[in-house]
Simulated scan of single mutants.
Amino acid sequence: MDRHDGFREFVLARQQTLMRTAYLLTGDAHLAEDLLQSVLIKVVGQWPKLSVNGNPEAYTRKALVNQYISWRRRLQVEWPSASPPEHGASYDEETVDRIMLRQALARLTRKQRAVIVLRFWEDLTEAQTAEALGCSVGNVKSQTHRALARLRALAPELAEPRSLSEFQEVTR
């Protein structure tokens, strides 16, 4: 029996979800790939323990968030303008909302962005989010409150209450 039995199956089964989370954290497809790859390298080293008596998905998600937060370099991402070019193609309302939300997410602190992604994209409870971030539930609540207030200030046109499915659609 190979010590990495099941790792390949885990990655194949969860790759899209993990990549989506990495993308929402970084806001850039290439950085998301780098983030996920660096985390999976760490996970494969822990796989024997995880596969026997651990929760590989929760461990991987936590590693993803921790790696994202600990990156020293500042993410330099060029964001397209929310206003379509005067002579270019016009965008539908959903596309403009998606661009504005991504721009606003990019301006949050790393922890605030991680809290928003975990709470509203991954649909984790406050306790699960606190566990993933290694902090208290109270910290998750205050970070969520501050992050939502900041998002409302950055993109007031998106401040109307949205359901989780609407948030997920806008961020795809």
Rank of each mutant, 00 (worst) to 15 (best):
Y91F: 15
W71K: 06
K42W: 00
G54I: 11
R61D: 01
T109M: 06
L151P: 01
S51K: 15
D92L: 10
I116C: 05
A155F: 05
V96Y: 09
K141V: 08
Y59I: 12
V65W: 00
L118K: 01
S51N: 11
I116S: 03
D97L: 09
K62T: 13
K49R: 14
V43G: 00
R152Y: 07
R74I: 11
E86W: 04
G88M: 13
T109N: 13
T95N: 00
T109K: 11
S165H: 11
A159D: 11
V117T: 01
A159L: 07
V137Q: 12
L101R: 14
R73T: 05
A89F: 13
V137P: 02
L40P: 10
A132D: 08
V77G: 08
C135K: 06
V137C: 07
N66M: 13
Y91S: 12
D92R: 13
L133M: 08
A149C: 01
T60V: 07
E94T: 15
R113Q: 08
L154D: 03
P56I: 10
G88D: 04
F120S: 08
G45E: 14
Q128T: 02
A155I: 04
V52D: 13
A153Y: 06
I41P: 00
A153L: 11
I116Y: 02
R152L: 02
L50G: 00
H145Y: 14
V52N: 08
I99A: 05
W71G: 12
L50S: 02
T144M: 12
E160Y: 05
Q143I: 01
R72W: 03
S83A: 14
T60K: 02
L164A: 12
A155Y: 09
Q128A: 15
G134R: 05
R72N: 12
P48N: 08
L108K: 06
A147W: 01
E93W: 14
E122W: 05
